[in-house]
């Protein structure tokens, strides 16, 4: 059931990316895809334990897997810098094309 939710989120993001012809909305769709993957990753590895921080006064606690969280953190930062770059390019593009409809910008075709 859980998987179904994240899968539908992923596909929703994908559909949003493909149907929207606005560049900004396109990247929002992509963000939704990315977020769904990360959410799935984190939630799947959550075994109902505590956050992976060792407390000195409570030894022997069950901790969640810390690795996916570290990986997700890295992936988020990477995605964030990618998107910053993308938005920069969109800003630059607006110097040349007032519309942001991808199909009306001829240069994006070929």
């Amino acid at each position: 059931m859980n998987q179904l939710f994240f899968l539908s989120l992923f596909l929703l993001g994908f559909i949003g990316m493909l149907l929207n012809r606005n560049l900004i909305k396109l990247i929002i769709g992509f963000e939704i895809m990315e977020a769904s993957v990360l959410l799935w990753f984190i939630s799947f590895t959550n075994q109902g334990g505590n956050p992976p921080i060792y407390l000195l006064d409570k030894p022997g606690m069950v901790l969640n897997d810390p690795l996916p969280q570290a990986l997700a953190l890295t992936a988020i930062v990477i995605a964030a810098s990618n998107i910053a770059l993308f938005l920069t390019l969109v800003i630059e593009l607006s110097r040349y094309h007032k519309a942001s409809d991808v199909d009306k910008i001829k240069g994006l075709r070929d």
Partner: peptide, 11 residues
């Protein structure tokens, strides 16, 4: 113009 478009497509 074409370089920026190329960048968008590439990314």
């Amino acid at each position: 113009s074409s370089a920026i478009e190329a960048g968008i497509k590439y990314i």
